[in-house]
Design a protein around this nucleic acid. Structure first.
Lengths: 361, 361
DNA sequence: TTGTATGCGTTATCAG
DNA sequence: CTGATAACGCATACAA
C-alpha cells in the first residue's frame, strides 16, 4: 500500500542504489538479486523485489550494465545497400533466416545496420554501435573501410560473400565453380552465341551493355567472379549489367538483349533467378520460345513468381545455410574458440529453360 | 614511425583520457574533438587525432557514451514469432521495408528482437536491451507483458496491429471493414455455403476445424477481427485454422475443406493471400475450377507465386506504409512531439478467383 | 550470505 | 577556445 505522503518521491528514476537503500541491503546484494549471479536468501530477495516494485525500478539500466560488463549482447549485421535489400531480395531473406536463427541460439540481439557514408551524424555505425561482433554482407571494396573500423575496435567479424582481407573470417559460395558449371552446361548444349545479364557492378548500379573497360571496373565480388567464370567459357559473350536483382531489371536487360537483329544470343546466363525470370518474360514478349528459341539460366535456386510452367536451370545455393554458418562462426569467435572460413557449394539444377543450341539441333 | 621500443604499450585499450594525456589536452577537449559538439582549434584537433592514431584509439566507447548521454540510438522491433517471420512473410517484409526506411531517416539503428519468454538469460529483451524506443509487431495478449516492461521503462512504444492498451500508440488496419467487404462481395455473388481459412489462433498454431468453443479462445487480434467480420455476414461459416500464413498451410486447409462431400463450400475466404493460393491449389487438386466450382478470396494484396493466370480477389493492405507510419510515429515520440494512433485502410480488389454462387447461376 | 570500495569510459556543465 | 569537476548506473573483487 503506497502512502499518500509519497509526493516527495524523487523525480529522477530510481537506481539500484535507491532500491538497496529502501530494502535495507547493500547495492551489491540488490545487484545480485537481479543478475542471479550468486545465491541470495529468499527473504532478502523478496525485500529487494518489493522495494523495487515500490520505487518503480524496472531492472538494471542496460547501458550501465553494458559498460560495466564490457559486452552488450548485440551483434551487428551490416548491409552495403539500402536496408530494404535485406527484406526484398529472396536470397538475402533466406540468409537472414538462417542468420537470425543462429544468433538467437547464441542469445544475441541483431542490430541491422547499413554501411552508409552519409548517415545521420549520430546514427549507429559499425564504428560506433554498442556491438560485440559484426557480420558484413556482400563486402565490397567500399565496405573495406568499415571492415577496418570494426577490426580496429578488435571486434570479431564475419564476412559473407565479400572481398575481405586475408585474415577475415569468410563465409563464401563456390561462385566460380557454380557459374562455370552453368556455362559449361550451356556450352555443352551447343550454344555459341551467349549473353550474360549481371548483377550490379558497383553501388552506382548503372544499367546496360558493358565493354571491356567497364567490366574492368566491377567492384562487387559476386558479380565479378560469376562473370569471370562464364567468360572463361565464352570469352566473347555480350555483357549487360542490371541495376539490381529483380524481375523488372531482368526484363529491361532481356529486352535489350533479345531485340530484333542478327546478333541475338541463343542463350542468356543471368546472374540471379529473378533476372532470369525477367529475361524469360522479355523473350515471351518478343515472341521467342524458351528454350526452343533461346535458352535461359539463372543463379540462386529460389522459387520465382510468374515463371509459369518453366523450371529454371540454375545453381541452387544454400542461402539459409550460409546465414546459419555465419551465425555459428560469430558464436565461436565470441566464445574465443578457433573458427575457420567456410566455403559452401551450390548444386546444379537442370530445368526446362535450357535446351539444345543451333549446333546440336 | 613507431619505435621498436614500444613494448611497454599498455595492454588495455586506450581511453579518451589516455589520448588526452598523450596530446597534452584535457579529456573534455579530446571528447569534443570526437563529438564535434564544440569548436576546437585546428592545431589542437590534429594533435588529438594524432595521439589517437598513435595509441590505436578508435573513438569513444559506445557503451560509455551511451551511459553518459542516456541514449543509445537504437530502436527495437519486436516480433512475437520466430524472427524468421520477419523475413519469410511477404507482408512483414514489406512492412519492415517501410519501417527500416523511416527509422534510418531518423538516424536510428534497428534491433531485431523476439519476444521470447525462454530466451537465453543474458539475451537482450524488451526489458533489458539498450534501446530508446520500441515497435511491437502483432502484439497479442502474451506480448502484453512485454508491453508493460517497456512502458515501465518509460520508453516510447508503437504497436503495429496489436492488442495494446488504451494509451499505446497504435498503427492499425481497418481489418474489420476490409474483411467485411470481402464477405459482402462473396455474399452479393450469391454464395451461402462459405468457409473461412484463418491465420493462427494463437502461438500454439493448432490446425484444423474450429468449433465455437475454440473460436472463443482466439488471442491473435488480426485473426479474431477478420473472422468476426466474416461471421457477421456468414454466421454459420465453417472455420478452419491454419498453422501459419503460407501456401502449404493453405493447401492443407483447402484439402480439408474441399474434400468430397455434400458439405463442400462454394466459396472460401482465406485470411491471407498465401493461404488463398494454397486453397486454390487444393481446389485444382480436387478437380474443381476456380471460380466456377469454388470462389476463393484472400487478404493482403501481395503478389503470390504459383497462382498461374488467376488474379486473386483480395483486400490490398498498405503494408509498406504501415511500417513507415510506425517509424515516423517513433520519430515524433522521440522528439517529444505529439503523435496519434493511425488507422490505415485497405483497398478491395476484385480479381478472377471469385464468381457467381449457386443462387445466381 | 552480505557489505565496502572502486572504476568501467565518457560527456555535460561551467568557469576561465 | 580549453580545462576542472562531477556524475552516468552498475557489477565485481575482496573482506567480513
Amino acid at each position: 500500500m503506497t502512502s499518500d505522503t509519497d509526493a516527495t518521491r524523487p523525480r529522477r528514476r530510481a537506481t539500484i542504489a535507491d532500491v538497496a537503500r529502501a530494502a535495507g541491503v547493500s547495492p551489491s546484494t540488490a545487484s545480485v538479486v537481479f543478475s542471479g549471479k550468486a545465491p541470495v536468501a529468499e527473504a532478502t530477495k523478496e525485500r529487494v523485489l518489493g522495494a523495487a516494485a515500490e520505487l518503480g525500478y524496472t531492472g538494471p539500466d542496460p547501458r550501465a550494465a553494458s559498460l560495466r560488463r564490457g559486452r552488450s549482447g548485440i551483434v551487428a549485421v551490416a548491409f552495403e545497400e539500402h536496408l530494404r535489400a535485406a527484406f526484398l531480395d529472396p536470397v538475402k531473406t533466406a540468409m537472414m533466416d538462417g542468420l537470425t536463427d543462429a544468433l538467437a541460439a547464441l542469445g544475441a540481439g541483431v542490430l541491422l545496420l547499413r554501411d552508409d557514408p552519409h548517415a545521420a551524424p549520430d546514427a549507429p555505425t559499425l564504428a560506433s554501435a554498442p556491438i560485440d561482433a559484426a557480420v558484413l554482407i556482400g563486402c565490397s571494396p567500399r565496405m573495406r573501410g568499415s571492415l577496418e573500423d570494426v577490426r580496429a575496435r578488435r571486434l570479431p567479424v564475419v564476412v559473407i560473400e565479400g572481398d575481405a582481407g586475408q585474415d577475415a573470417l569468410r563465409i563464401e559460395l563456390d561462385n566460380r565453380e557454380a557459374a562455370g558449371q552453368l556455362a559449361r552446361h550451356v556450352h555443352g548444349l551447343g550454344h555459341e552465341h551467349v549473353a550474360v545479364v549481371t548483377l550490379p557492378f558497383d553501388s552506382l548500379r548503372e544499367r546496360g551493355d558493358a565493354d571491356e573497360a567497364r567490366i574492368a571496373t566491377i567492384t562487387t565480388p559476386v558479380t565479378q567472379i560469376r562473370l569471370e567464370a562464364v567468360r572463361a567459357v565464352f570469352p566473347d559473350a555480350r555483357v549487360v549489367s542490371a541495376g539490381g536483382s529483380s524481375i523488372d531489371e531482368g526484363l529491361i536487360a532481356g529486352r535489350l538483349l533479345l531485340a530484333e537483329g542478327e546478333s541475338r544470343p541463343t542463350a542468356v546466363l543471368a546472374q540471379s533467378d529473378l533476372l532470369a525470370a525477367g529475361v524469360i518474360r522479355a523473350a515471351e514478349e518478343a515472341g521467342l520460345r524458351v528454350p526452343e528459341d533461346v535458352s535461359v539460366a539463372g543463379f540462386d535456386g529460389i522459387s520465382v513468381d510468374g515463371l509459369g510452367a518453366h523450371v529454371l536451370t540454375t545453381a541452387v545455393q544454400p542461402a539459409v545455410e550460409k546465414g546459419r554458418a555465419a551465425g555459428e562462426a560469430v558464436a565461436r569467435l565470441l566464445a574465443g574458440e578457433p573458427a575457420a572460413s567456410i566455403r559452401l557449394t551450390c548444386t546444379f539444377r537442370e530445368g526446362t529453360t535450357t535446351g539444345p543450341g543451333p549446333a546440336h539441333r
